[in-house]
Amino acid sequence: MPGMGAAAGAAAQAATISPLVLFLQADIVVKVVMLGLLLASIWTWAMIIGFTFTLRRASRQSSAFEDDFWKAEDIDRFFEARGKADFPAAKVMAAGVTEWRRSTAQKVIDREGTRDRLSTSMSSTIATEIDRLSDRLNILATIGAVAPFVGLFGTVWGIMRAFTAIAAEQNSSLAVVAPGIAEALFATAIGLFAAIPAVIAYNRFSHGINRMEAKLTRFADGFYSTLSRELEAQR
């Protein structure tokens, strides 16, 4: 089949140099590189789409939750109604409320200790949520950094092979040189094709996650102040 592909490629090559033809013509090493980069590109875009959904949903839900929270009359009732949801702000609030209930259940309330525990539990919940969100974000960074090099490797390999072919034919006309060079450069093209969206997406998402973390921290601080005041009032 590769032979047929190459023959078809030679015929089609005069008109167009299509990706499929270039792929079929290429050396096995270059083929592996191209396939790897193509998978990396697919993965990148899958993550971009998935991340966009996840981040946007988490952000929207958290914002709505915070708004409702600050408007709520009774924290306990609000928590019973909406605190069990599965998004960052709700989790943070759940952590705070759970810790509050445990700490105030005792007969003698240790205020300092309670404050410490509230603060710690909420910030650790924030960290967990952020970790869960930013999980696999490093994959985007890796693809963005490495894909060009992998593509370059494929190009160098392909060009070396092209030169060997030129030497074997003892003919350096454009017709001999061009297909080899073109197929080799295609590897770099795919590498860049995968890397550019990955880098852009990585920067965009790490910015989004930082913002999310700041927002959650502010929410946790506000909630902590509220609980701290309650603690003061509890005698």
């Binding site: 008109a15 167009t16 140099i17 299509s18 990706p19 499929l20 033809v21 193509l38 590109s41 697919i42 993965w43 990148t44 875009w45 899958a46 993550m47 971009i48 789409i49 998935g50 991340f51 959904f53 996840t54 949903r57």
Partner: peptide
């Protein structure tokens, strides 16, 4: 969300390379 993303990305790549192979951008 990731499943959807993977499906969309795969479909997009297949479409793009199909178009390129068909000489759409030749």
């Amino acid at each position: 969300a990731e499943k959807i993303g993977l499906g969309v990305a795969t479909a997009g790549h297949v479409l793009l390379f199909g178009l390129l192979s068909a000489g759409f951008l030749a």
